[in-house]
């Protein structure tokens, strides 16, 4: 059963169309890796699916209330402790922070530490732990492994595998091989052609 279906999607950044005719399905329990050079529109595609910006055209099913989005930034508050940061997102999503989150993201020893005293990698792990707190099945991940070392990357890949095994779904834009047995989608063929510029001033 497809958890996330995208068809004939066109999206733009700053009024300039980047992608058009994007279509794919991600079945339940699997992940799809988005590939493409910098600036092709991976972030724009993920933000569009997350509902932060309107699509120019096309349909999306399975995002919305099923999905949790993770941007480059983790939205981590420096003066709040690790626990408080996660508790906030749990309250926002109406869930509880699962105890398993702390060992899964190697945060158990850091629970009471203010996030401002964490290293960049630790803070990133905290930002990603938010995904486990939301309880959402469909994950929209934008470069989740930025500033993670090899060990942490493997740790995150392990958690993601567990999430997929539990019936979850992930759409991941990444340059780093996560070691997932997942199909890849190259966005280059979907680059918006110059003729289809919709700018009303041309």
């Amino acid at each position: 059963m497809p958890a996330l279906t995208v068809s004939a999607l066109a999206c733009a950044r700053g009024g300039i169309p980047l992608l058009e005719g994007v279509g794919f399905t991600v079945p339940e329990g699997t992940a799809l890796i988005l590939r493409g050079t910098n600036g092709i529109g991976k972030t724009t595609l993920l933000r569009t699916l997350a509902g932060l910006q309107p699509a120019l055209s096309g349909t999306v099913t399975g995002a919305g209330d099923e999905a949790a989005y993770a941007s480059h930034e983790g939205g981590v508050k420096a003066v709040l402790s690790v626990e408080e940061n996660l508790a906030f997102w749990a309250a926002l999503y109406g869930t509880q922070v699962p105890e398993a989150v702390y060992p899964a993201f190697h945060l158990a020893a850091l629970r009471a530490r203010p996030a401002g005293t964490l290293s960049a990698g630790q803070r990133r792990r905290l930002g990603l732990a938010r995904l486990a707190v939301t309880g959402r099945p469909v994950l929209l991940l934008d470069e989740p492994t930025v500033s993670l070392d090899a060990g942490s990357t493997a740790l995150f890949a392990g958690w993601l595998r567990g999430h997929l095994a539990a019936g979850g779904t992930a759409l991941v834009a990444t340059h780093v091989p996560l070691g997932l047995e997942a199909p890849e989608l190259d966005l280059a063929p979907f680059r918006a052609r110059a003729e289809t510029l919709t700018d009303p001033f041309l």
């Binding site: 300039i16 110059a194 700018d199 041309l202």
Partner: peptide, 12 residues
């Protein structure tokens, strides 16, 4: 706006 749009297209 037209100039800006034409510039953007040229860059693309």
């Amino acid at each position: 706006r037209r100039i800006a749009a034409l510039r953007a297209r040229a860059q693309r």
